[in-house]
Design a protein around this nucleic acid. Sequence first.
DNA 1: ATGAAAATGTAGCCTTGGCTACACTTGGTT
DNA 2: AACCAAGTGTAGCCAAGGCTACATTTTCAT
Lengths: 147, 147
Amino acid sequence: MTTAEPAPIELPEEPTQARRFGKARTAQSAALLEDYAELIADLLATGGEARPTDIARRLGVSHATAIKAIARLKREGLATARPYRGVFLTEAGEHLAGRVRLRHRLVVDLLLAVGVPREAAEQDAEGIEHHVSDATLAAFSRFLAGR
Amino acid sequence: MTTAEPAPIELPEEPTQARRFGKARTAQSAALLEDYAELIADLLATGGEARPTDIARRLGVSHATAIKAIARLKREGLATARPYRGVFLTEAGEHLAGRVRLRHRLVVDLLLAVGVPREAAEQDAEGIEHHVSDATLAAFSRFLAGR
DNA sequence: ATGAAAATGTAGCCTTGGCTACACTTGGTT
DNA sequence: AACCAAGTGTAGCCAAGGCTACATTTTCAT
Ligand SMILES: [Mn+2]
Ligand SMILES: [Mn+2]
Ligand SMILES: [Mn+2]
Ligand SMILES: [Mn+2]
């Protein structure tokens, strides 16, 4: 034989595929808020305060960009902030941050468990975490527990 | 004891964290082109042609949105298309589609292997695939081979 | 107390990726 | 040959998420 057998291509049903892509887009649009919420919670927990400049530096964006995102967090009821006074999370924001942090850790742990090198795991988890459903998260937990 | 021990929070170094977030943003901006390339290749392979309306229906977006994305594919040298004549992939586009399809399959297979239910695996893979680095992909391959 | 540096906020610009509405081809039926 | 439906393209709108430049407020050292 000259080449490996190319696996046959089969397309999902059209409505199924459209639904999957749509959900992936929805997950993506939530990603930014999730990262901000998680980071703000971490900064508050470790340093005591979450200032726009700190947030911006950690995310690698300009402070203007961070301030606009914080405005969106406020608009969506996840954070509070008064001018020149730092950012805090609402109940909803804290709750979101908690779930996001758990997901983040589980994704990293699963990647490590299947043999992904540490830094790749930490890097890839930052994107992957936003696309892990509850069902998948549960499977990750079971897999990690049973070994 | 009353509550589970809350794992201690430690933040990555600032430049490290900024680099990770930046890479995740870059990966995200490539995601749309990857999905289009993969889908166009699949349509060409199975149906013989990839028309804007088909692409739009499968992605769950309007045909106008699809046409604009196809324009971007052309701009970036991944596709060719003449008015009213359907879309084709360039060498670069075919190559991208091939890599994306492989990644997509490996991600689904890995999720199944760790116990994720079929539909959740297919769904989550659609987003996860865009954040899987070569190092992680290699680890997935090894994991799947050794069992 | 004051002056400089740092942080914060605002304005205006850009690209991406959505959408709807409308105009124009194309291709099959009659 | 003509018509009509489907497909295609274009225009114009919007929100998100980037940026730079500039104005304002705080904070900190002197
Ligand atoms: Mn993230
Ligand atoms: Mn995270
Ligand atoms: Mn995808
Ligand atoms: Mn895919």
